Measured scan of single mutants.
Amino acid sequence: MQIFVKTLTGKTITLEVEPSDTIENVKAKIQDKEGIPPDQQRLIFNGKQLEDGRTLSDYNIQKDSTLHLVLR
């Protein structure tokens, strides 16, 4: 499925993911596309910070959902 990740600069990254993917996996995909190390990434969905060990389906993230990427 496709999800979107919006950065603070207003750029939107499109990712191909599975609901069973962990947040860690998603961060690795963002690193592949953008070169941002996962330990600098914080992903936010519906105002909640997403934890590495959880999956997209844990957070009820579905296709065409938009996550927000904050760098630390």
Rank of each mutant, 00 (worst) to 15 (best):
residue 25 N to E: 08
residue 68 H to W: 01
residue 39 D to F: 13
residue 51 E to T: 02
residue 2 Q to R: 05
residue 45 F to Q: 13
residue 54 R to H: 12
residue 51 E to D: 09
residue 48 K to W: 11
residue 60 N to D: 08
residue 22 T to W: 12
residue 15 L to W: 01
residue 34 E to F: 07
residue 10 G to A: 07
residue 2 Q to N: 08
residue 5 V to F: 09
residue 35 G to T: 14
residue 14 T to H: 09
residue 33 K to N: 10
residue 8 L to P: 08
residue 17 V to I: 11
residue 71 L to F: 09
residue 48 K to M: 13
residue 20 S to D: 12
residue 57 S to A: 09
residue 42 R to L: 11
residue 54 R to Q: 13
residue 21 D to W: 12
residue 55 T to I: 12
residue 58 D to T: 14
residue 45 F to T: 07
residue 16 E to L: 07
residue 57 S to D: 14
residue 59 Y to R: 01
residue 36 I to Y: 08
residue 47 G to W: 03
residue 40 Q to G: 02
residue 29 K to W: 14
residue 7 T to W: 03
residue 22 T to H: 06
residue 2 Q to F: 07
residue 61 I to T: 05
residue 72 R to W: 12
residue 22 T to R: 03
residue 15 L to Q: 04
residue 39 D to Q: 08
residue 67 L to K: 01
residue 50 L to N: 00
residue 10 G to E: 13
residue 6 K to I: 13
residue 59 Y to H: 08
residue 17 V to R: 01
residue 30 I to K: 00
residue 25 N to M: 15
residue 14 T to S: 09
residue 57 S to I: 14
residue 44 I to S: 07
residue 2 Q to S: 03
residue 30 I to F: 04
residue 70 V to K: 03
residue 72 R to Q: 08
residue 47 G to R: 15
residue 1 M to N: 12
residue 63 K to V: 09
residue 31 Q to D: 11
residue 29 K to E: 08
residue 16 E to F: 05
residue 3 I to L: 15
residue 62 Q to L: 11
residue 62 Q to E: 14
residue 68 H to S: 05
residue 23 I to V: 06
residue 63 K to S: 07
residue 60 N to K: 04
residue 24 E to I: 08
residue 33 K to M: 11
residue 45 F to M: 15
residue 25 N to Q: 15
residue 17 V to M: 08
residue 33 K to E: 06
residue 5 V to M: 08
residue 56 L to V: 03
residue 25 N to D: 07
residue 55 T to Q: 14
residue 51 E to F: 02
residue 44 I to R: 14
residue 39 D to G: 06
residue 41 Q to L: 14
residue 40 Q to K: 05
residue 45 F to S: 13
residue 1 M to T: 15
residue 48 K to H: 05
residue 55 T to K: 11
residue 21 D to M: 07
residue 20 S to V: 02
residue 49 Q to S: 10
residue 26 V to T: 08
residue 47 G to D: 14
residue 2 Q to W: 10
residue 62 Q to I: 15
residue 36 I to D: 02
residue 63 K to I: 07
residue 11 K to Q: 05
residue 8 L to I: 14
residue 8 L to H: 13
residue 24 E to F: 08
residue 1 M to K: 04
residue 58 D to W: 02
residue 68 H to V: 14
residue 17 V to S: 02
residue 54 R to N: 04
residue 52 D to I: 06
residue 24 E to R: 04
residue 55 T to A: 10
residue 2 Q to M: 07
residue 46 N to L: 02
residue 37 P to G: 09
residue 57 S to G: 12
residue 11 K to N: 14
residue 42 R to Y: 05
residue 46 N to T: 05
residue 69 L to W: 03
residue 30 I to P: 00
residue 22 T to Q: 07
residue 47 G to Q: 12
residue 47 G to N: 14
residue 10 G to D: 13
residue 47 G to A: 10
residue 11 K to R: 03
residue 1 M to V: 11
residue 20 S to K: 05
residue 64 D to N: 14
residue 34 E to K: 01
residue 43 L to G: 00
residue 55 T to F: 12
residue 32 D to A: 12
residue 72 R to D: 14
residue 24 E to G: 03
residue 18 E to A: 13
residue 39 D to A: 02
residue 25 N to L: 03
residue 5 V to P: 00
residue 66 T to P: 06
residue 32 D to L: 04
residue 35 G to M: 11
residue 36 I to Q: 04
residue 68 H to L: 10
residue 7 T to I: 07
residue 49 Q to D: 02
residue 69 L to S: 11
residue 20 S to E: 05
residue 64 D to G: 03
residue 64 D to E: 11
residue 12 T to W: 15
residue 39 D to M: 07
residue 30 I to M: 11
residue 17 V to F: 02
residue 53 G to E: 12
residue 42 R to F: 12
residue 43 L to P: 01
residue 44 I to L: 10
residue 30 I to L: 05
residue 47 G to T: 05
residue 67 L to H: 01
residue 37 P to E: 04
residue 14 T to V: 10
residue 27 K to I: 15
residue 29 K to F: 06
residue 11 K to D: 15
residue 55 T to E: 03
residue 11 K to L: 15
residue 54 R to F: 11
residue 61 I to H: 00
residue 4 F to K: 04
residue 66 T to N: 11
residue 31 Q to A: 06
residue 49 Q to W: 09
residue 44 I to W: 03
residue 17 V to P: 06
residue 53 G to F: 05
residue 3 I to V: 04
residue 72 R to Y: 15
residue 37 P to R: 03
residue 69 L to E: 11
residue 12 T to S: 04
residue 47 G to S: 12
residue 50 L to R: 00
residue 16 E to K: 11
residue 18 E to Q: 13
residue 53 G to H: 07
residue 66 T to V: 04
residue 54 R to P: 06
residue 7 T to D: 03
residue 50 L to K: 00
residue 68 H to A: 07
residue 46 N to I: 07
residue 43 L to H: 02
residue 56 L to E: 00
residue 70 V to I: 02
residue 22 T to F: 13
residue 9 T to S: 03
residue 53 G to N: 03
residue 14 T to A: 09
residue 72 R to A: 13
residue 61 I to F: 07
residue 53 G to L: 06
residue 28 A to D: 04
residue 16 E to R: 05
residue 35 G to N: 13
residue 60 N to S: 13
residue 50 L to T: 10
residue 6 K to R: 15
residue 24 E to T: 04
residue 3 I to G: 00
residue 60 N to V: 08
residue 65 S to L: 06
residue 26 V to K: 00
residue 26 V to E: 00
residue 43 L to K: 00
residue 34 E to N: 07
residue 53 G to K: 03
residue 57 S to W: 15
residue 31 Q to M: 04
residue 47 G to L: 06
residue 40 Q to V: 05
residue 40 Q to Y: 02
residue 62 Q to K: 07
residue 15 L to E: 01
residue 24 E to P: 15
residue 24 E to N: 03
residue 11 K to W: 04
residue 4 F to M: 01
residue 44 I to N: 15
residue 23 I to K: 01
residue 51 E to V: 04
residue 64 D to K: 04
residue 5 V to N: 00
residue 8 L to Y: 08
residue 70 V to W: 06
residue 19 P to Q: 07
residue 36 I to S: 02
residue 6 K to E: 08
residue 25 N to G: 11
residue 58 D to R: 02
residue 10 G to R: 02
residue 39 D to T: 14
residue 63 K to L: 13
residue 22 T to I: 05
residue 54 R to Y: 11
residue 53 G to R: 06
residue 60 N to L: 14
residue 38 P to G: 13
residue 44 I to K: 04
residue 56 L to R: 00
residue 42 R to Q: 15
residue 13 I to L: 07
residue 37 P to L: 15
residue 31 Q to F: 11
residue 7 T to R: 03
residue 27 K to E: 12
residue 18 E to Y: 15
residue 13 I to V: 12
residue 16 E to N: 04
residue 66 T to D: 13
residue 33 K to S: 15
residue 60 N to Y: 11
residue 25 N to H: 14
residue 15 L to A: 03
residue 49 Q to R: 04
residue 60 N to A: 06
residue 23 I to N: 05
residue 2 Q to E: 11
residue 59 Y to S: 13
residue 71 L to H: 06
residue 42 R to D: 14
residue 1 M to W: 06
residue 14 T to P: 12
residue 69 L to G: 01
residue 66 T to F: 08
residue 27 K to G: 09
residue 46 N to P: 01
residue 21 D to L: 14
residue 3 I to A: 01
residue 57 S to M: 10
residue 45 F to N: 10
residue 68 H to D: 05
residue 68 H to N: 14
residue 12 T to M: 15
residue 59 Y to Q: 15
residue 63 K to N: 04
residue 45 F to A: 03
residue 14 T to I: 07
residue 44 I to V: 12
residue 27 K to P: 00
residue 62 Q to M: 09
residue 58 D to N: 09
residue 48 K to Q: 06
residue 65 S to F: 14
residue 71 L to R: 06
residue 48 K to I: 04
residue 42 R to E: 15
residue 49 Q to P: 06
residue 18 E to K: 10
residue 2 Q to I: 02
residue 72 R to E: 08
residue 28 A to M: 05
residue 61 I to M: 15
residue 44 I to D: 10
residue 72 R to S: 15
residue 5 V to E: 00
residue 65 S to D: 14
residue 5 V to A: 03
residue 4 F to I: 09
residue 35 G to I: 09
residue 69 L to F: 06
residue 20 S to H: 13
residue 4 F to A: 10
residue 43 L to Y: 10
residue 62 Q to R: 08
residue 38 P to E: 14
residue 68 H to I: 04
residue 62 Q to N: 10
residue 71 L to M: 13
